[in-house]
Design a protein around this nucleic acid. Structure first.
Lengths: 241, 241
DNA sequence: CGATGTCTTGAAGCAGTTCAACCAGGGTGG
DNA sequence: CCACCCTGGTTGAACTGCTTCAAGACATCG
């Protein structure tokens, strides 16, 4: 490794300068020099809702960072039954270090943008940058914690509690800048919500209608949600007061 | 770091010499010197079924390695509903790096033994040993994958499929030496199985009875299971042929 | 031997599914 | 510009798989 360049003054790649997540995600652990190195192997992509980032069963060839929008991670069974097993928001990392083959599909839930990196390039940098490995490890632990919390939701909650939980989850994740948005666009269709909660689309719809009738939430145009009574919504989601 | 000792010939701690998992788990990434260092902060403990390794909500003070038996990871809700979110077999690692507070309880499911390490000591070694961080990261990814597979099970499978899945899971994990045991002791009570599958104890019992009547399995003394027809059991668990 | 904890079995109830009809918004084309 | 359809969401009614509640079987242990 050459250290001739003074890392602190090295030019940042143009794409990175303009990037919202420059100071979040894996990028925050990298020096300008490293970003320049990495940048030779990255490609920004805009993806439409429903478009795949990668597909269950295919070999792992690249990783990605979510720059805009929401990406859903799904698993499908041979007979077509489907389960969403994670939602990646800005600036989360997508991909499976250590795995040869993708164990799930990643698909845009909304209009989205990603910054894709080739596996080999990132793997090389991870090996050389303990901070980077540490960051990925830390995100993996966070995702593990989320997945396990969701197992409790899937295994033990009623439909009403599940739907309330989802609304709380989205409200705490959709805007990286604030803790709890009370007003947001749902990144998921009713079908997606069902696939996330292990419910049918009809049950989801009925529960949303109920929450609306009880004035816990307001819904406009099917997608736009306003939380009217956060305390009671959190209670309905078994999150205490 | 002093490198005066020749690491390769340095004496292994006595406990480690006799330890079955010396060449598995996190220990495999450490030199004899490091093991001696670590050993000053570890303590082997035997734990009875039901005894806690650590408890949801308490501060993280130590990690542990499973040396013998099975440890279940559980989450409980305020009203007492409970979900098992993971099973740790030999030689898995238990604990939450990066977290201040335990987000779940770890409790022995069977007679078990663990090797406990103080958080501060291990954190220090992790920071100094990239291989160790890498190993923990790799296990976290593997657990994440298991958790997500289980989300599919919890969200989309029928009671019969869930029970068959659990039997397959145990058969592939209970003996670290073989791929697939056809004959094993269930590490879980009916109640535990229910808490793992998101079912009631009665439903679990009925499904086991059915699998027994269909000659997919044999059950003796409630706990001892023999798989009679692995192909059909895997089919019932939606694992293909 | 009764006593206790764990598991099984049965019958009734209900939450969530299934199936089907309906509704609202948004193109498209005649 | 209205008739048409098409997609995504809602609502209703019947059904079913799992739960609930209650009783019985079985093993283990003082």
């Amino acid at each position: 490794m050459k250290h001739r360049d003074d890392e602190s003054t090295a030019e940042l790649p143009a794409v990175c300068k303009a990037c919202d997540v420059r100071h979040g995600g894996i990028c925050q652990t990298m020096s300008p020099l490293q970003l320049r190195e990495l940048n030779r192997h990255t490609k920004r992509k805009a993806i439409e809702p429903g478009a795949e980032v990668h597909c269950q069963g295919e070999p792992v060839v690249s990783y990605a960072n979510v720059i805009k929008g929401v990406v859903k991670l799904t698993k499908v069974m041979a007979d077509g039954r489907q389960q969403i097993v994670g939602l990646q928001f800005v600036p989360d990392f997508i991909g499976h270090p250590f795995l040869k083959e993708n164990s799930l599909s990643a698909e845009a839930a909304t209009e989205a943008e990603i910054c894709a990196v080739s596996k080999s390039a990132l793997d090389r940098m991870v090996a050389a940058t303990p901070d980077l490995e540490r960051h990925l490890h830390s995100q993996a632990q966070a995702e593990l914690e989320e997945a396990r919390s969701w197992m409790l939701t899937l295994g033990r909650m009623s439909a009403r509690e599940k739907v309330a939980s989802l609304l709380c989850l989205v409200s705490t994740h959709c805007d990286p800048k604030v803790d709890h948005s009370l007003d947001f666009e749902l990144p998921l269709s009713r079908q997606d919500i069902g696939d996330f909660l292990g419910l049918t689309i009809e049950t989801v719809s009925r529960q949303i209608t109920k929450l609306r009738q009880e004035r816990l939430i307001k819904v406009e145009n099917n997608r736009h949600v306003t939380i009217l009574d956060l305390r009671r919504l959190r209670q309905a989601a078994c999150l205490g007061t």
